[in-house]
Design a protein around this nucleic acid. Sequence first.
DNA 1: TAGATTGTTAATCGATTAACAATC
DNA 2: TAGATTGTTAATCGATTAACAATC
Lengths: 218, 218
Amino acid sequence: MDKRSTKKSLSVQTLRRLPNYLNYLKGLDASKDEYISASALAAQLRLNEVQVRKDLAAVSPTKGKPRAGFEIRQLIIGLEEHLGYNSIDEAILVGAGKLGRALLSYEGFKNAGLNIVAAFDTNPDLQNKSLDGKFVFPLDRLVNLSQRMKIHIGIITVPAEAAQEVCDLLVEGGVLAIWNFAPVVLQVPEHVYLRNENMAASLALISQHLQEKFTEEA
Amino acid sequence: MDKRSTKKSLSVQTLRRLPNYLNYLKGLDASKDEYISASALAAQLRLNEVQVRKDLAAVSPTKGKPRAGFEIRQLIIGLEEHLGYNSIDEAILVGAGKLGRALLSYEGFKNAGLNIVAAFDTNPDLQNKSLDGKFVFPLDRLVNLSQRMKIHIGIITVPAEAAQEVCDLLVEGGVLAIWNFAPVVLQVPEHVYLRNENMAASLALISQHLQEKFTEEA
DNA sequence: TAGATTGTTAATCGATTAACAATC
DNA sequence: TAGATTGTTAATCGATTAACAATC
């Protein structure tokens, strides 16, 4: 049996917390402590203790030890495994504007299991040369290249107006997941997983919070 | 009584959906329909009908009409109000790297009630001139300028290692909310609202989804 | 042993969904 | 009137938190 299939699938909420655990643990001095308790980690990250304990129990390959906590090295391994950092996925990015280029040049993706192999753009000035280390192709090469390279992930960083059209091309190119940074609700077929990075929502949360702060002061 | 204080505060989940409603409604041909039903909107956005109806009821200044639905123009007004698009908040951005510049030049923030008034960076090559329409100051001007301009929001787009230090400066500068793009868990005092834009989590969700797809096929 | 910490079971909470009456 | 749609109340679901026994 494939070992992968034994990996339990985690809730969206849990998965959101994992990168934070990983960042924190990696920031620790490895030579200092071998173990960390769920309680200590919870205090640092301002989370509920039981919640952290359950999360850690779900990802740690080894059990936690009473009185000690969880083995940090094992936790890191488990977290990276569950975050998919070991299985590299290949992606193409469409829209080599400012945001697109920021993503193209972001070094952190490599360690997070994402490899952006090529970029696409309609602007002829950007085409057929490298930009931030990735070759930029014209848009009409997308479907063919994507199919031939069996790309799984498409990243959309084009303006809102162009996003659905690009999305359709990616689907035609056979991608199985789309990471959308454009502020539009895209229509995708059932079998394609759509993940929207929605900054407008973040902004709205900040805005609501500030307004509350002011009204309660008044 | 201040009208603002009558605005009910919405749940995080609801707030996340609002930008999608707004995008969709704004994309409609204004001259075509005056009303839209929660059912129709739900179908378009692949959401539950009752959920959409409740969301719309919460933000629409006018009640929905049986047999017709909600008045689109009113909905747009209500959505923009609840998303905070009418009250402009001023922000400063720290870290004029690729991602920082992408945000500096993003036109959409203006309409979303966010005005980035200045940028800061440690790199002398970038300092004391305009970049993407914003003036870039050296980091040691941050606290003073932020205080004097009574800035409410700080945006962090520096590498992980520098993020906490920048965060502390922003807090000292008196910001009330921090929008953090660096992959670190920041420590902020109680009164400061922290919003993490956590792309690692998005990526993990995509990765988990792809793995499930493959294991269920196998 | 005593006490810190894990792991598990039960209670709580909030969000989603279902059921259905009210309305135009 | 009939039927589509709203609005509301109740049921369900899942995630968080609390309580507590097990363990080293």
